[in-house]
């Protein structure tokens, strides 16, 4: 059975090696963070970090990330202990429905790891491939900048 390293732990999963990583994370490991949005790598709702890089888990096969460190939204902070970045989204009330927010936070996490003090323009460009239909973009940008400020 394929083995995945997720949020610091190693798991065997039932998913086939060529199955999308997204379904292994959601349905085998019961993680809610990464969401199915399109299955086409177009919207970003399924974003996770693989060795620190943002990856669209809906088009990433299980076997292609064997041995690599996978981080999901839960890996940043869960169980009532949000990370600074997640807390910034609470402080800015940075969403309407929040379905896309996993991808936004994970993409922003990758940006802040690379560029701890980004400009607003840099945040917008980094998030340009993540879709939000509710129109909460400006709140989300403010949340990322707040997290950078407080980082």
């Amino acid at each position: 059975m394929p083995v995945l390293k997720v949020n610091g732990r190693t798991h065997e999963v039932q998913a086939a090696e060529d199955a999308p990583l997204l379904f292994a994370l959601r349905n085998d490991l019961r993680l809610n963070g990464p969401k199915f949005g399109c299955g086409l790598a177009q919207c970003g709702a399924c974003t996770v970090l693989v060795d620190g890089q943002p990856v669209r888990s809906c088009v990433t096969s299980v076997d292609s990330v064997a041995g690599q460190e996978i981080t999901t939204l839960e890996g940043l902070g869960a169980g009532g202990e949000p990370s600074k970045l997640q807390q910034a989204f609470i402080d800015e009330q940075a969403m309407q429905c929040g379905y896309c927010v996993n991808g936004i936070i994970m993409r922003a996490k990758a940006l802040l790891d690379q560029t701890p003090k980004p400009t607003e323009r840099e945040v917008r460009l980094a998030l340009d491939g993540n879709l939000c239909r509710c129109g909460a973009q400006n709140r989300m940008v403010r949340a990322v900048l707040r997290a950078a400020q407080e980082g």
Binding site: N32, A78, G98, V101, I105
Partner: peptide, 21 residues
């Protein structure tokens, strides 16, 4: 008043129908 649903949504807690198992 902060929205009651937002903390769960930023940490991946069970709240969306898509996540019901």
């Amino acid at each position: 008043v902060p929205r009651i649903d937002i903390p769960n949504k930023v940490t991946g807690e069970l709240i969306f129908i898509q996540d019901q198992r």
